[in-house]
Amino acid sequence: MSDYSSEDSETEFVLYRNNPEWKDVTPVKQDDGEEPVVAIDYTEAFWQYRREILKGLNKDLNIELDFIHKVILRQSKNYQVWHHRRVLVEWLKDPSKEKYLTELVLAKDAKNYHAWQHRQWVIKTFNLFEGELEYIDSLLLDDVRNNSAWNQRYFVINNTTGFTEEVLNREIDYTLFNTKDVTENESAWNYLRGLLLHDKGGLSKNKKVTEFCENLYKSGNHSPFLLAVLVDMCCEQINEGGGDSVYNLDRARTLCNELITKYDTIRAKYWQYMLDGIEKRPKRARVKRLLRAQIKHMDS
């Protein structure tokens, strides 16, 4: 852990041992043994110790909040600094500056995991969901491939309105609108699948979605994510009893073969494995049906 002063980074760093203010402190030597392993020249600073000092000296925690704000902007991928921030917010019970701080960090790196984690924690703990969907909109407008933003969208809806029929409809529209021009965006396809987990009909029976997919396919689009969704739709229908006129064994065969030979060749073995599984399924279902009939017959 490095040491930071609250001054600007241009200020020359002075070791504690050379700092007159620390003159009255007798240094305690670390005992590294005779043969050090991965020896490192370092400076010490322990956040836990710092927190106990802050409490012990009854320091103004708002000043500390400003200090850690600066540290986070410089060290935004360090676990300890975010944890320190979280403890301070818990102590102060004041989440008012947190969204802004995470927005500053996300403005530089829109996928910073720590910032998103902190943001989710503060939003959920202090019920700050208001305005979050609008913020996500702005991020997706900037980069529709921002997977963190899509994940946040799911988080917000799951914790507020839930996926009611109305919300589901709205979100499907939103996702399809954002997919039509950028069809190789895994994040949006994954979100769409996430939405359909809440559709009573499953993956393959939402008219809006199937129409969108079929039109896209007919237009000559071969995004592997589109083809994969279509394969899974076939799987679902076959599992439910043979498949309808669109999503059936023949269709699955065609799609898998397209993925294997042309559109997702690095995962060819996987699609072959998927296809083998699908081919076996109708047979398995048939055997099960026969067995059931036989048992019924024996019972009567």
């Binding site: 995991y113 998103w116 984690q117 989710q120 997977n147 963190s148 994940n151 799911y154 988080f155 799951n158 914790n159 994954n190 979100y191 699948r193 996430g194 987990l197």
Partner: peptide, 13 residues
């Protein structure tokens, strides 16, 4: 997660 993978905590990416 809804996308099949696992996050560092519940609801995380």
């Amino acid at each position: 997660s809804y996308d099949g993978g696992v996050g560092q905590g519940p609801e995380l990416e």
